[in-house]
Amino acid sequence: MVTLTLPDAAAPTEGAGAEAAGTSTIDLGTAPVRELNQALHDAVDGQSWTVTSPGGRHSLAVGITADIDVAIEGHAGYYAAGMHQKGSVTITGNAGVGLAENIMSGTVHVTGDASQSAAATGHGGLVVIDGNAGARCGISMKGVDIVVGGSIGHMSAFMAQAGRLVVCGDAGDALGDSIYEARIYVRGSVASLGADCIEKPMTPEHLDELAGLLAAAGRTDSPADFKRYGSARKLYHFNVHNSTSY
């Protein structure tokens, strides 16, 4: 179960350390996911948590509202850090479908690969994937920033509304299909662009923005090597003559 030194539960033994709370460990080899999430929902700002033996379980560390740091040591299943709102979640391993879906703010970092629909519909915050991401990365993104160290799969940034997607490797087919106001930066090749997505010029403003995102993700890639993509804004209104564009 919870083999932890919960500072508030264990009361005075730790003393009122400068470290706000110490680190608590939850071992998912024995504790159910429910126990982990309840503990994180009850957590207070400044605490640190380590999750061991995640074993690819789903819905790990979802719905966090306190400014805490969570370290998941191993692979996570679907919806890891879903609807994240504050603090950081770091997954040392791979993540399944819907990593950090609908993230509002805070940071989620995966050291390995992420499956489909990473950061789907995210409204804010930063999602960093050191490895590759599968199909539909950033689908319907609404303000989140995503930095992928490797490549991303097809239909990524589909209907992307706002936010920035940075890809240090290559992008799959139909990138940015039906994109709205999100910005996409890709260093490598793009297999194909989706409907209404076009390459756009890199101005100093964009190079600056990209440099900031790369730095936030702890990367050293040069912004000058990237190309920018975004909406041609031709499908914003119904038009008879667009019927073959979709």
Partner: peptide, 25 residues
């Protein structure tokens, strides 16, 4: 969109419902 962005089919939906339940305790 007419399909959900992060799940398709009943097996995924089961996991999605699990996530919503976890978030709302």
């Amino acid at each position: 969109a007419s399909r959900h962005p992060d799940w398709t089919g009943p097996d995924d939906l089961e996991i999605k419902i699990g996530e919503l339940r976890e978030i709302t305790d």
